[in-house]
Simulated assay, not measured.
Amino acid sequence: MRLLIKFSSDTAIKIPVGYNYYFQSMLYDLLSDDVIHDKGVGARNYKLFTFSRPIGAYKYSKTEKVLTYEKEVKWLISAVDNEFLEKIVSNLMNTDFVKIGEQKLLLSSIEVMKTPPLKIFKSPIQIKMLSPVTIYSTLYDGEGKRKTYYYSPFERDFSTKLKENILRKFNALYNKTPDDDRFEIEAVKPKKEWEKIVEYKGTIIKGWMGRYRLAGNPELI
């Protein structure tokens, strides 16, 4: 299930460039008094939800490092667990406002979007990223120092590592491996400007926007 949430303000909406932290903090604030806040799946306690970048026309200020929207912004959340999203809806409906950084936002509307049936995901299918996709490995140098290596869609391992990640989460969610483990992702005419570098809790993270072709088992797509 997915939620398309619309927020509004009487004035221009200013959202920090490092919006990931603020939107995730808002989510956890909405769930802070609920056991679902700590609910995950598998040994790694995966939180199987994702959310888009703020959606809407904006102006970017390099000096302030903020995105300015004209009194309205949309936001899409998707999750495997419907209960997770139901709690978000319930708590939003009982909240006067939410805060993104120092910006107070009012709830304008919530649209519940059903998960499309598997038959729609015919292989291959083309998608557009609504938030940067991040694929990385933790490596160690000769001195044993840890280093994070981020893969790009220009590399073959980008698809391989994403497939490994999907299979781990499938196994954690269903406690089994899929009968058909075919999965490939290929960037459609990738461009360097698709790369997005964001700061999250003091850590630099690299991700990629753009359009991609997915092929394989519809359950994994």
Rank of each mutant, 00 (worst) to 15 (best):
I5Y: 00
A12S: 13
G18Q: 10
Y21K: 14
F23T: 04
Q24K: 14
Y28G: 02
Y28I: 02
Y28Q: 01
Y28T: 04
D34Q: 08
V35D: 12
V35R: 05
H37R: 14
K39S: 06
V41F: 14
A43F: 08
R44Y: 10
L48K: 01
F51Y: 13
G56I: 07
Y60I: 10
T63Q: 14
E64A: 14
L67S: 12
L67I: 11
V73D: 03
L76Y: 07
L76K: 12
S78Y: 06
A79T: 00
N82M: 07
V89Y: 01
N91L: 04
N91D: 11
L92S: 06
M93P: 00
N94T: 09
D96V: 06
D96A: 11
D96S: 13
K99N: 12
I100N: 07
G101F: 04
G101T: 03
Q103P: 07
S109H: 03
V112L: 14
P116H: 05
K119A: 07
I120R: 12
F121H: 04
P124M: 02
Q126G: 04
T134I: 15
T138Y: 06
D141W: 01
G144K: 08
K145I: 04
K145V: 03
R146L: 03
F154K: 13
E155Y: 06
F158R: 05
S159Q: 11
N165Q: 09
I166M: 12
L167A: 06
L167H: 05
L167T: 06
F170V: 00
N171K: 15
Y174S: 04
N175I: 09
N175W: 03
D180A: 11
R182G: 12
R182C: 08
P190R: 05
E193N: 15
G202M: 13
T203Y: 10
K206F: 04
W208Y: 15
W208I: 08
G210V: 05
Y212T: 02
R213C: 10
A215C: 02
A215P: 02
N217V: 11
N217H: 09
